[in-house]
Design a protein around this nucleic acid. Structure first.
Lengths: 209, 209
DNA sequence: TAGATTGTTAATCGATTAACAATC
DNA sequence: TAGATTGTTAATCGATTAACAATC
């Protein structure tokens, strides 16, 4: 029942996976599932799944299983995906553009509310339906927007600098796509998405000729 | 000394992180570092770093530390990043386009050698310097190319189908950007990059108003 | 030599999974 | 009731870290 007991990071990551599976089950109009079903669909051990949920309360009925809609709703709630989250995007290059136009983000209630760049020739042009703004204005812009999540999609060499501006703009969590270790004040949560790292791990597993 | 003893996945992931740090040290012309330096720069415990390396042999000199260039070279070698790896990209949308034009990939010796899509209006047009080819031709195309790594950058609903084509084309490792659980034959290694999952974890950590 | 730092062992910590009483 | 499946405890497994002899 306690929602405050420290939740392991892997549990949190799997929660998002369960949501993906549950969304799919909803589409297929399946309305009850067991932890064993999850095991076969998500590749996560059934006991693991039940344990993960146990950090947040009771969700199923012994002998029956879980109601798909209810479980989806409750996990969304836990991950704070039940209401729209405003997000600041920094970097209007290829990657930033792809992120701003990425449908699954909207589907899960993340809304990019502003895009920033430092390139004068981009400032005041549009990225999809958003005006690209001067990165120097991020602090004042976010006074109104009040976004708490920031995405860094700029080259590595300026990522640290951008991170500091995001912190100044009162963002408290950062998703960093640049392959750099950010130095951040405590209290700021950051995650790195590193394509090259992912490919490197795959590369290691390649058969040796 | 054994390179074959099963290496933990987190070790492999950190190896790529070390490489990033080492590249940076090379740029700064620093040529010797200790595990304690790595701890402060990569945020990884010094003992952890030494343990990670120990799966692959001996790399440093007691009392001295590690030679930056040599360590970089050896880790590159371990991850098979010392020679160019050909990669097939499926999906010539926004994300595929961003990946194909992503400089760090080239910097680490990954080379996208072909792009495939199923959209007739895209086929035979160019994505950067590559001709977009019909996904139906992937098997025959890869007979010549012999790429072993595939990237899936298509919408979720077609990701499974694309994965199967990649397997048919004799790819053995897959990086999947679609938020779906792929069902793959054993022997195929896959990793998912899920932006929404990353954001969901951040979202969880958001202060409750 | 004295000081620094490695590679590795052993101790700790935490996450995964099996087992089962409770319950539908 | 008998069968199914949960939530949770306890056992297992594996990864992280501290400690230290070896060595530069």
């Amino acid at each position: 029942m306690p929602s405050s007991a420290k939740v392991p990071m892997p549990t949190l990551e799997r929660l998002a996976t369960y949501l993906t599976v549950l969304t799919d089950l909803k589409v297929r109009s399946i309305d009850t599932i067991s932890s064993a079903d999850i095991e076969s669909r998500a590749g996560v051990n059934a006991a693991q799944f039940r344990k993960d949920l146990s950090y947040f309360g009771e969700f199923g009925r012994p002998g029956i299983g879980y109601n798909v809609n209810e479980l989806h709703k409750r996990i969304s709630r836990i991950l704070k995906l039940d209401k729209t989250q405003p997000v600041l995007l920094v970097g209007a290059g290829n990657l930033g553009s792809a992120l701003a136009g990425y449908p699954p983000l909207r589907a899960e209630n993340f809304q990019i509310v502003a895009v920033f760049d430092n390139n004068p020739s981009k400032i005041d042009t549009k990225l999809w339906d958003l005006a690209i703004k001067d990165i120097e204005k991020i602090v004042s812009e976010n006074e109104t927007l009040q976004a708490k999540i920031g995405i860094i999609a700029v080259p590595s060499r300026v990522a640290q600098e951008v991170a500091e501006k995001l912190v100044e703009a009162k963002v408290s969590t950062i998703l960093n796509f640049a392959p750099t270790m950010l130095k951040l004040p405590s209290g700021i949560t950051a995650r790195n998405v590193d394509f090259v790292q992912e490919l490197a791990v795959l590369s290691f597993h390649l058969p040796n000729d």
